[in-house]
Simulated assay, not measured.
Amino acid sequence: MLFDLTELPAEIGYKILTATVTPRPIAWVTTCSPDGIANAAPFSFFNVMGHEPPTVALGLLRHPRRGLKDTAANILATGEFVVQLVPESMAEAMNATCADLDPEVDELALAGLGTVPSAQVRPPRIADSPVALECRNLASVVTGPRQMTVIGQVLCAHVADRLVLDAARGHIDTPSLGLIGRMHGSGWYSRPGGLFQMARP
């Protein structure tokens, strides 16, 4: 069946894209407002985009009433953010931070998450996340009246020591990260497992 996304209502296009582009990695993004208020929120329109320089992209939808969501507003105001990846053990805490809250509410405190200082940017890192990528905003593109894409340069990566197999060669114990991904519909996620490998021709 052909779905003409230029003709269909936006919410139908959203359902088709999120039901088919799966699993999607989750960027658990921490930012700081210009006043220093920490913010945390998960986004599944996310991926790594290159390595020279290392870049990631975030798709940030607008808040239905306030315009830009806190994450987008903070990135535009400060140019800094941290992307944490989400292990299954932290799924409930991640879910708690996606609540629709006022900008002055610290989602990290609300979810009971400990933080540690970042090395090169102002926003804190989530202490128990196995991977955190400190980023600087390279470009922000308004892609529609309710959304924008942020491209960030990854300045440094923090990986839990227990998961580093060979630091000199950049070898990470990826299966042991235990990362979850976003799937289709309301509240569906993927968990690790069911891997297979093929050699590239």
Rank of each mutant, 00 (worst) to 15 (best):
L61W: 09
V82S: 07
M90P: 02
R65I: 09
P25W: 08
T78N: 07
Q84S: 15
D173N: 12
A41Y: 00
A91P: 00
A157E: 10
V56R: 06
I75F: 13
P192S: 12
W28T: 06
F81T: 00
V116E: 15
P130F: 08
A93C: 02
A96Q: 14
M148E: 15
Y14D: 13
A157D: 04
R62H: 15
H171S: 10
I12C: 05
I12F: 12
S176Q: 14
L68R: 14
G181L: 04
R191I: 09
G59P: 01
S118W: 08
N39F: 03
L163G: 03
D100E: 15
V131N: 03
R146H: 13
R62D: 15
F81R: 01
G112C: 04
H63N: 15
G79V: 02
Y189K: 00
P175A: 11
K15D: 15
G79E: 07
L133Q: 08
R191H: 13
S89E: 08
N74K: 01
T97A: 09
T18Y: 02
H171C: 05
P34Q: 11
D166Y: 10
A73W: 03
R125T: 03
D128E: 15
Y189W: 04
G185S: 12
V86H: 05
T30Y: 00
E7T: 13
C135V: 03
P23T: 12
L155D: 09
E7H: 11
I180H: 00
E107T: 00
D4M: 04
L179C: 04
A27K: 03
M1I: 05
L113K: 01
P42C: 11
G67A: 12
A57W: 01
A96K: 13
